[in-house]
Design a binder for these strands. Structure first.
Length: 271
DNA sequence: CACGATACCTGTAAGC
DNA sequence: TGCTTACAGGTATCGT
């Protein structure tokens, strides 16, 4: 998916067409993604005015004047298409504004989701209630990580993918941040030293900020809402670079499996 | 509770 | 050229 930078890029792209717009037509082209669409989704959104857009972790928020926000998750393969020439089999939800713009939520694997959530209760919505701090901003600190990881035997890589520890990190940026901080992905989270955590936090913030500035990554079926390509994928140090030379020491980048997923790392630079 | 494995679904690329 | 297998950005849920 779309990790945090890609969702941020998506939300910014959508805002150009949706912020302040009135929804003239809303169409669901199947009944569900990972979960069923809310049964009243079309009824609530049709005629609604979008009062703002936002993001929490990897969720995009479309606020409305109906007292409810449409909350979407892009799963592994979701993206919003802007003014699609024609709709395909994976365009599952279509929004049309009174200004004549058409936006389509396309998600081939259907691991994404769409929900309606009361604006007043967003923070208490189950998927949001337990989320950890955002990596952008001041909430994520070495002290937070020290507390969250204390005594944990699970690998640091896996703990950083846990949205309750940090909200919004995914496989790409965890691999990249651990490389930049020089931390071995298999190290027990509770045994990562304080100095290592002091290195890790600014590297998490930096890699996320750089990816947002570059407009997100582009891998396989992901693209920005307007079809432009992101540039950050050209800057990966380790992600998907198995066997290629480490950008720092030249040793071949290694791949290992953790939690059923791939981790790329440098065996010499990460201890 | 912590942790690992599995399930969800389709497309793509690699291997035979 | 097929056919089969492995793997892909995530998260919820089920065992142990």
């Amino acid at each position: 998916m779309p990790e945090l930078p890609e969702v941020e890029t998506t939300v910014r792209g959508l805002a150009r067409y949706l912020d302040g717009a009135r929804l003239a037509r809303v169409e669901t082209r199947r009944a569900d993604l990972r979960r069923p669409f809310p049964p009243d989704l079309v009824q609530v959104l049709t005629g609604a005015t979008v009062t703002g857009l936002g993001r929490r972790a990897k969720y995009g928020l479309i606020h409305t004047d109906r007292g409810q926000a449409m909350v979407f998750h892009l799963g592994m393969s979701g993206r919003w298409r802007i003014e699609p020439e024609e709709l395909g089999k994976h365009d599952h939800l279509v929004l049309e504004t009174t200004a004549g713009h058409r936006l389509s939520l396309c998600d081939p694997r259907r691991f994404g989701s769409v929900d309606l959530v009361e604006e007043a209760g967003l923070a208490e919505w189950p998927a949001f209630a337990a989320l950890g701090p955002e990596p952008v901003g001041d909430e994520l600190t070495p002290a937070h990580l020290k507390t969250a990881l204390k005594g944990r035997s699970a690998a640091i890589k896996l703990m950083l993918l846990d949205q309750r520890v940090v909200a919004g990190l995914g496989n790409i940026y965890v691999c990249e941040a651990l490389f930049r901080a020089g931390i071995a992905p298999g190290k027990a989270a509770g045994k990562v030293s304080r100095p290592a955590l002091e290195r890790l936090v600014p590297q998490i913030k930096a890699v996320i900020a750089e990816a947002i500035a570059a407009g997100g990554s582009t891998l396989r079926d992901y693209a920005q809402p307007d079809g432009q390509l992101g540039y950050f994928s050209k800057q990966f140090d380790v992600y998907d670079r198995h066997g290629q030379p480490c950008t720092r020491c030249g040793a071949p980048v290694l791949r290992l499996a953790q939690g059923g997923r791939s981790t790329w790392h440098c065996g010499k630079c990460q201890k």
